Amino acid sequence: MITVSLVALSGLSLGACVSSMAYTSKVEAAYPPDGQQVAVNGHSVHVMTRGPEAAPVVLMIHGASANAREFTWTLAPRLEMDLRVLMVDRPGHGYSERFGGADTLAAQAAQMAGALELLAPGRKATVVGHSFGGAVALRLALDRPDLVSSLVLLAPVTHDWGDAEGGTAWYNSFAANPVFGPFFSQLAPIAGPAQMKNGISGVFAPAPTPPDYFENSGIGLFLRPPNFRANAQDMTQLKQELAEQSRRYGELAVPITVFSGSKDTVVSPKLHTARLKKQVPIELVILPDEGHMPHHGEGSAVAGAIRRLAFGRQTR
């Protein structure tokens, strides 16, 4: 009986691996790297660039379950005529290399800093962060204030959520597990695509989901097993990381604009943005009809805020 079970399990594992390899090959052919690979702290970082090289710099950091393509068709087209836009894949996402310790906000911010130093040497940037990317943007401003002139945070996760419900999806704890996580992650390409497409509307609600969002943002890259596992590790570490990082927010000394959808059910404005506002002065833009993706439905307003800060025009 044990032998039969082991054989069955081995067959299931092999089948999942073959399926995930086929999926990875197909999705990477559909969404190949669209930028350049730069070496930062001994690890490869994928950066997409747009706009005049000598223009003011904007660095964009994507959220969880995503990659830098998120910005290529939303914000970059609104900014690239007169701003230098750098869109960076976080470690283990898109086409940036994953490494030991990359699940810490400090390590991810260090990779963003290195990319900025290489591609815009001697210059400060307006740093834009969406969701998880907001936490990385804040850490970058804390650890490397010499590189950051201002922050624009989009539905940011900023604090630990205590005993409140939500925070991370159930599958993250399985995928991040050091023992069976690698196998569990092989299942992502099998069940993941349909589940993700069905769940996207909840991320945008009550705003409508843009047509072809899944395809335009290359979300399929997330379901490659190593990417899926890297995301799970990020998410399971995040609560503790934010508990420590949030104690430092009083150090922030740059202009900060925050866009918050009042109906965001992914990252609670009450648990995050409202608490940040108590610690540091921010320009808060509340969007009554938006959820977790304000840079889509309110892209013009977000781009306007980025441009204003990038060119040094402040409202306070």
Score class of each variant (00 low, 15 high):
Arg69Thr: 03
His295Glu: 03
Pro178Phe: 04
Ala188Ser: 12
Asp160Gln: 12
Val285Ser: 09
Pro208Asn: 09
Gly218His: 11
Ala205Pro: 06
Ser262Ala: 14
Pro156Cys: 07
Glu241Cys: 06
Gly199Pro: 01
Asn227Ala: 14
Thr209Cys: 09
Leu223Met: 13
Gly15Gln: 06
Gln111Asp: 00
Gly101Phe: 08
Tyr31Asn: 06
Thr315Ser: 15
Arg229His: 08
Arg313His: 15
Ala29Asn: 06
Ala169Ser: 12
Thr158Val: 10
Asn216Phe: 14
Met293His: 10
Pro281His: 09
Leu83Cys: 03
Ala125Thr: 04
Asn172Ala: 12
Gln108Ser: 02
Ser268Cys: 11
Val38Arg: 07
Val148Met: 08
Gly166Cys: 10
Glu215Leu: 12
Gly291Gln: 04
Gln233Ser: 10
Gln237Gly: 11
Ala243Asp: 09
Thr24Pro: 00
Pro52Cys: 02
Pro225Ser: 03
Leu140Arg: 06
Ala205Cys: 06
His93Pro: 06
Gly133Asp: 03
Val45Met: 02
Gly94Pro: 05
Gly114Pro: 08
Ala191Val: 15
Met112His: 03
Ser44Asp: 04
Thr209His: 06
Ser217Tyr: 13
Arg78Asn: 01
Ser19Asp: 09
Asn216His: 15
Gln237Ile: 00
Glu117Cys: 03
Arg248Asn: 13
His292Trp: 07
Ile200Phe: 12
Leu79Thr: 02
Ala29Cys: 05
Ala16Leu: 09
Trp170Pro: 05
Thr236Gly: 01
Leu142Tyr: 10
Ser201Leu: 11
Val27Ile: 11
Val27Gly: 01
Met60Asp: 00
Thr158Trp: 03
Ile190Ala: 13
Met60Ile: 05
Val148Trp: 05
Arg247Gln: 15
Pro210Arg: 14
Met235Arg: 07
Gly202His: 05
Gln237Glu: 11
Phe132Asn: 02
Asn216Val: 12
Asn177Asp: 15
Phe71Leu: 03
Val258Phe: 07
Ser25Tyr: 11
Gly92Cys: 06
Gly11Val: 10
Ala39His: 12
Ala188Arg: 09
Arg307Ala: 08
Leu223Val: 06
